[in-house]
């Protein structure tokens, strides 16, 4: 048989554009549909940030020993909340490897996976870090009020409070987004079949 073999159709490979609109709607949808997990993640972020905020704003004595132990507490709080948030984000992404693999089979771009996971984390970080910073401040004020009564705001160095609020908020957000960045990056680069099997 000397039949010629030729391709059936003539077409050119195209390229896909990333639609931020679809990324946004997908991230919001995903949060809504997994609201239980989202609340749990929020709780972790909020508590961690609140703890940090409380430590940062509580009235401190000037005793060098106290300052030393406060610093230690501060570092510990960063490590503990950092690890907590990171772990939560890691879990929520790794649980979705299969879904991510499926989406890649359907034509999702690597950047689509990356951005939609990051956006989800950023939304959680925004809400959680804000709520945490405010909650931490309120707790701090209430506790200081009990100790210092009317002089509470002198004791807490009121002029520095807005700065601290912003700082803690940013740290909380950064931790959340960074926590998602690593697994999101891994997931977005994974070959679809491996992702679907849930392998790394």
């Amino acid at each position: 048989m000397n039949s010629a073999i030729q391709p059936s159709a003539d077409w050119e490979i195209g390229s896909l554009k990333l639609s931020m609109e679809v990324v946004c709607s997908m991230a919001v949808n995903s949060l809504r549909q997994r609201i239980g997990r989202a609340v749990l993640t929020l709780l972790t972020i909020t508590t961690a940030t609140a703890f940090m905020m409380y430590l940062l704003t509580m009235p401190r004595s000037t005793d060098p020993v106290d300052i030393q132990s406060w610093r230690l507490m501060m570092i510990l709080s960063l490590v503990v909340s950092g690890a907590g948030v990171l772990n939560t984000m890691l879990m929520s992404v790794t649980q979705r490897y299969r879904e991510i693999g499926t989406m890649k089979c359907l034509g999702a771009l690597d950047s689509f996976i990356l951005y939609s996971v990051l956006l989800e984390a950023a939304i959680l970080g925004l809400v959680g870090a804000f709520a945490g910073a405010v909650a931490g401040l309120i707790i701090s004020i209430l506790l200081a009020l009990a100790d210092h009564g009317g002089e509470v705001f002198q004791a807490m160095e009121i002029a520095n409070l807005p700065g601290k609020l912003v700082f803690v908020f940013l740290v909380g957000m950064a931790l959340t987004t960074l926590g998602a960045l690593f697994p999101a990056f891994i997931a977005s680069k994974m070959p679809p079949m491996d992702a679907m099997r849930g392998e790394k």
């Binding site: 490979i13 390229s15 896909l16 890649k104 359907l106 034509g107 771009l109 690597d110 679809p192």
Partner: peptide, 13 residues
Amino acid sequence: QLDANELAWLRCR
């Protein structure tokens, strides 16, 4: 011969 984006297009379309 396809890069990641082209592969995504192929899978998609």
